[in-house]
């Protein structure tokens, strides 16, 4: 069954520039899709458009159907109901994605309370459980902390806990590991992989890093300048890229890998 169906999505600015051009893809329940592309290729805009959250001065045309709701042109009230419940997002920069003046526990409690109607001690337990789910040690302490008091990796786990709090059908991960250092990256990918499998969630994984996408997703879509250049199984994209752009991406990933190999064998 189709969970997310994007048909001919086009995002334009008011001054007429086209940022995403006639993009189409679909995602079934429990399925995983990677969006690969360099900065400015329109991958983040696509994820925002899926939730009807394009920045001011940008308009989307085309069709986006998320769990049966037509997103493009939908009234704000219907969009608010969809967000968090049908799809939730983990952003790239965990420090700025958390409200600096709100304790971590309350930030997770907000969507939880809204969706489940829990209160008081039950809500606090649910928050602690959500933090445990993302393998955070000492959830009670973390819940009382402000975002600046915990580490970057912990922040991203909190952001993931927030996104998973309402048990969305689709998890949109927008470069969730880019801001983390390499050892934490691997843990984070592992965690997303496990949690999503347990919950049979669909994933839209956005990254500029082919290797990262290959770890989490089955299929991928390569974006360049707002256009889909190539799509297919990640394995075949890496093994036999057809388009020049994909080849360049794969080659650069290879170069990096071989450089790392050289160093480790030395």
């Amino acid at each position: 069954m189709t969970l997310l169906d994007v048909r001919g999505l086009t995002v334009r600015t008011t001054d007429g520039r086209t940022l995403v051009d006639d993009l189409s893809f679909s995602l079934a329940r429990g399925e995983r899709l990677g969006l690969i592309g360099e900065s400015g290729s329109g991958k983040s805009l696509t994820t925002l458009a899926v939730l009807g959250l394009l920045p001011d001065g940008m308009t989307a045309t085309g069709g986006i159907e998320l769990a049966g709701t037509q997103i493009v042109g939908a009234p704000e009230k219907r969009l608010t109901a969809v967000r968090g419940r049908d799809a939730a997002v983990v952003f790239q920069e965990p420090l700025t994605a958390l409200d600096p003046l709100m304790r971590v526990g309350r930030q997770i409690a907000e969507p939880l309370r809204r969706r489940t109607g829990l209160k008081g001690a039950e809500l606090a337990r649910a928050v602690a459980f959500a933090l445990e789910q993302v393998r955070l040690p000492d959830p009670e302490r973390i819940a009382r902390a402000f975002p600046h008091e915990i580490s970057g990796g912990q922040r991203q786990r909190v952001a993931l806990a927030m996104a998973l709090a309402c048990d969305p059908k689709l998890l949109i991960a927008d470069e969730p590991t880019t801001a983390l250092d390499v050892s934490v990256q691997a843990e984070m990918l592992e965690l997303i992989d496990t949690l999503v499998r347990e919950r049979e969630m669909a994933v839209l994984f956005v990254s500029h890093d082919l290797a990262v996408v290959a770890k989490v997703t089955d299929r991928a879509l390569v974006l360049k300048d707002g256009r889909a250049v190539e799509k297919g199984e990640v394995r075949s994209l890496v093994g036999a890229p057809r388009e020049d752009y994909t080849k360049a991406l794969v080659a650069s990933a290879r170069r990096l890998e071989s450089a790392l190999d050289l160093r480790s064998t030395r």
Binding site: L51, T80, R83, A88, P111
Partner: peptide
């Protein structure tokens, strides 16, 4: 313009 506002909005917080 901050990310945490977008983050709050994506989790379904009303304006």
């Amino acid at each position: 313009a901050q990310d945490y506002i977008t983050a709050a909005r994506t989790s379904g917080t009303s304006w």
